[in-house]
Nucleic acid binder design. Structure first.
Length: 261
DNA sequence: ATGTCCTGGATACCAGGA
């Protein structure tokens, strides 16, 4: 086994953000990348540019919204699942799973759920239940698994958000969202960033509104979870904040962890 | 309520989503 960097990045439109993605890949050279919010139909995915950067890719896109991809440096990931089980009528492209560099990687874009209450929030919670059910199966397999992506959940009011005041009614902070997150973790998953930095304020998303980047008014909603088989390899984790400060940046920054050999 | 930025459809802006 070799050391690996695994990252997740909500890119908010892969076509308009392709130069930013390529610059980040070149500078940080992650081994595995989970991307969300491609906002791009399958036929328009920029495969050639990503391959030229040294990455094989799988993608599950759709027109206008959602869309997830898994990149692996020097290889093409081997797809194991496209879409979460449990609802044949769910047309959103929000889950993709593959084997790469000796890991099973689940890349997810959990529904935002706003406004709440309402049908979008119900969809979020139902999607979360399907994720929890599927995650249990992954744990039962005993394989080394990473579940990475935009969970659209701020785990706590204290270290995961600059101030909860103006977000109290937001779907990202609701008790139901947080309870689902806690039930997922209670299966045995390790929240990589929080595990290594138990007392640090960590943000991965800064809203475009109201100069929230300039004020460092962020939220931690992009998460990397490790299965018990993999947790002993966790060495480092962080957020590539420099990406958020570039011109025309996504509202999220890449979030990563380093696994030892 | 406000603010910004993406996509797509039909225009020289708007709607929908986040």
């Amino acid at each position: 086994m070799t050391a690996l960097t695994v990252a997740t990045f909500n890119i908010n439109g892969i076509r308009s953000r392709l130069p930013a993605l390529l610059a980040w890949l070149e500078r940080e050279r992650p081994d595995i990348v989970c991307l969300q919010e491609l906002k791009c139909p399958d036929e328009a995915f920029p495969q050639a540019a990503i391959e030229a950067a040294g990455y094989g890719a799988l993608w599950h896109g759709q027109k206008s919204w959602n869309g997830v991809a898994i990149l692996a440096r020097g290889m093409t990931p081997l797809e194991s699942r496209r879409g979460l089980p449990g609802d044949a009528d769910d047309s959103h492209s929000r889950y993709l799973e593959a084997a790469a560099h000796g890991l099973i990687v689940g890349c997810l874009y959990l529904p935002n759920g706003n406004p709440q209450p309402g049908p979008k929030f119900d969809y979020k919670l139902a999607w979360f239940e399907r994720l929890i059910a599927h995650a249990q199966g992954l744990l039962d397999s005993g394989h080394p698994v990473v579940l990475a992506g935009d969970y659209n959940v701020v785990p706590t009011d204290e270290l995961d958000i600059y101030s909860p005041r103006s977000w109290k009614k937001d779907a990202l902070l609701q008790p139901e969202s947080r309870a689902a997150w806690q039930r997922l973790l209670a299966q045995g998953w390790t929240d990589a960033l929080r595990h290594l930095h138990p007392d640090a304020r960590i943000y991965t998303f800064w809203d475009y509104f109201r100069q929230r980047w300039e004020r460092d008014a962020g939220l931690r909603i992009d998460h990397l979870l490790l299965s018990p088989a993999l947790a002993p390899r966790l060495r480092e984790a962080g957020v590539d904040r420099w990406v958020r400060g570039e011109p025309k940046a996504s509202d999220h920054a890449p979030t990563w962890m380093r696994l030892g050999a």
